[in-house]
Simulated assay, not measured.
Amino acid sequence: MIESSRVCRCVICHDYGDRGDYDDADRGVVDNVSAYGWSVTGVPADEQGPGWAYTIGRWHSRGEPELAMFGLDLRVMQSCLNILGQRDGLADGQAHDDVVNGYPLRLRAVEPDWFRAFFGQGMWFYRHPPIPFLEVVWPDRDGAFPWDTGSLTQPHLWLAPADHPRGVWTQDV
């Protein structure tokens, strides 16, 4: 579990001397965080596996955990993360039944050993992680969550990598 005391060492709060080296994606994140409080980074699905999306900036702007979602269409995940991103007090174990019409979402705390595999741009932004991340977990069409069925359509980042079932989500860990 991540220590909850808030110390922000992000690229906005601290000059690491490399601001002239930012690429367009880096500048876009900084601009979005400055303007809106967070940015959503999407990693599209490819031949190696499903896509995912995650927020960057909630910890900086609000002292709130970052959010991550996996295995759905990028636009759907970005929309869900933006809806949840506006909320305060998000925590491990919470249920949110009003984000996706007809489907409940659950929040699970992400084990820090997953950060490098999935949150590279977030690691760049914060420089001194870990910072808290919550995985936004969605059910299957029958309303069952991965912990009920063992499904690997989304990773089980609340587990340590050594305890996660082998599959598409564990190839870079």
Rank of each mutant, 00 (worst) to 15 (best):
E66Q: 11
V29Q: 01
V43C: 14
V33A: 04
P155I: 07
Y16H: 14
I83R: 12
D148K: 09
P112H: 02
G37E: 05
F70H: 12
D140H: 09
L107Q: 05
Q94Y: 06
N101L: 15
D21I: 00
L74I: 09
Q78F: 03
V29S: 00
N82P: 02
G167M: 00
D73V: 11
D23E: 03
D142R: 13
A91P: 05
Q121T: 09
I131Y: 10
N101E: 15
D98Q: 08
E3V: 13
P50G: 09
H14G: 06
V136I: 11
M69A: 13
Q171H: 15
L159I: 08
G143I: 08
W59F: 15
P130E: 08
G85R: 03
G57Q: 09
C10V: 14
E64V: 12
V168E: 08
S34L: 14
R27Y: 00
W38T: 07
G93Q: 11
T41W: 10
W138K: 07
Y103V: 11
S4M: 07
G85W: 06
W169Q: 12
A68T: 12
L134Q: 15
V173T: 14
L157D: 00
V99T: 13
V76M: 06
Y126C: 01
C8G: 06
Y103M: 15
H60V: 11
E64R: 00
R9T: 09
D148W: 02
D18Q: 03
D140A: 14
D98C: 15
D172W: 15
Q86I: 03
W169E: 08
V11H: 10
A91M: 08
R6I: 12
V137P: 07
Y16G: 15
T55Y: 11
R106T: 06
D140F: 12
R116Y: 13
L159D: 03
W169Y: 14
H164S: 02
R27H: 03
E135W: 02
W138Y: 14
R6E: 10
D26C: 04
R19Q: 13
H60N: 05
D98E: 12
W114S: 01
F125L: 01
R62I: 02
N32E: 15
R127H: 13
D73Q: 07
V168F: 02
I83Q: 13
S39I: 10
M69T: 06
D46H: 07
I131L: 04
G122M: 07
Y36S: 10
D163F: 01
S4K: 03
D172Y: 15
